[in-house]
């Protein structure tokens, strides 16, 4: 039974997930409405393929439906799991296309920001886009190659013709800028 005074919009991820574990379709629908845009957009950015991104989106939420009772708040956030799992599946598809294959661990993702409401998500969208836009081009390129293209630091160094140490420094600096904004 849903606690009094709560709606799907205001319920926390974990309370919705608990209801999904009890086979509540409305709760799964609420989680989908909350995160489908983020998950789909990320997968589409990596794969540049709407159909493939939609497939990943649907499979991920079907997995949430099938394994809701296994999610543990002590091990990380649902939103973090969704975003990292979407990225991993998209990169895996990319790597299968290029002949590479590597499993990436998606468990244990701890988000420092609230992302459960549309207002919080809009705020983050604004913050993160602003900081990414303000990064030096070479830092942004290194970060995007790593996260959205699935490239290792060695591959990025080869692609850009820069020393490995330089690439590591660029990625570290970019992450420092991002962390400053997230903690502010």
């Amino acid at each position: 039974m849903r606690p009094q005074g709560t709606t799907a919009e205001t319920s926390t991820d974990w309370s919705l997930l608990a209801r999904v574990g009890q086979r509540d379709e409305e709760a799964l629908s609420a989680l989908y409405d909350r995160y489908s845009g983020l998950v789909f957009s990320e997968a589409k950015r990596i794969l540049r393929d709407t159909g493939a991104a939609e497939e990943i989106l649907q499979d991920l939420f079907y997995q949430v439906w099938r394994t809701a009772e296994r999610f543990d708040p002590a091990k990380g956030s649902l939103a973090g799991w969704l975003l990292v799992a979407a990225r991993n599946r998209a990169i895996s598809k990319l790597r299968r296309k290029s002949g590479k294959s590597e499993e990436l661990d998606e468990n244990g993702v701890s988000l420092s920001m609230d992302v459960e409401s549309h207002a919080a998500q809009n705020l983050l969208l604004d913050k993160v886009r602003t900081v990414m836009g303000s990064l030096p081009e070479n830092q942004r390129e290194a970060l995007e190659c790593a996260y959205f293209e699935g490239m290792t630091h060695t591959e990025i160094a080869e692609k850009t013709g820069q020393p490995l140490g330089t690439i590591k420094t660029r990625i570290r600096s970019a992450m420092e800028s991002l962390k400053k904004v997230l903690s502010g």
């Binding site: 983020l38 957009s41 990320e42 950015r45 990380g76 956030s77 939103a79 973090g80 975003l83 990292v84 979407a86 990225r87 244990g108 993702v109 701890s110 988000l111 420092s112 920001m113 998500q121 983050l124 969208l125 913050k127 993160v128 886009r129 990414m132 970060l143 996260y147 959205f148 992450m175 991002l178 962390k179 997230l182």
Partner: peptide, 12 residues
């Protein structure tokens, strides 16, 4: 991992 996941918010 959480900080890296925030990069999803940079996407259109």
């Amino acid at each position: 991992r959480g900080n890296a996941a925030m990069l999803a918010f940079a996407v259109k």
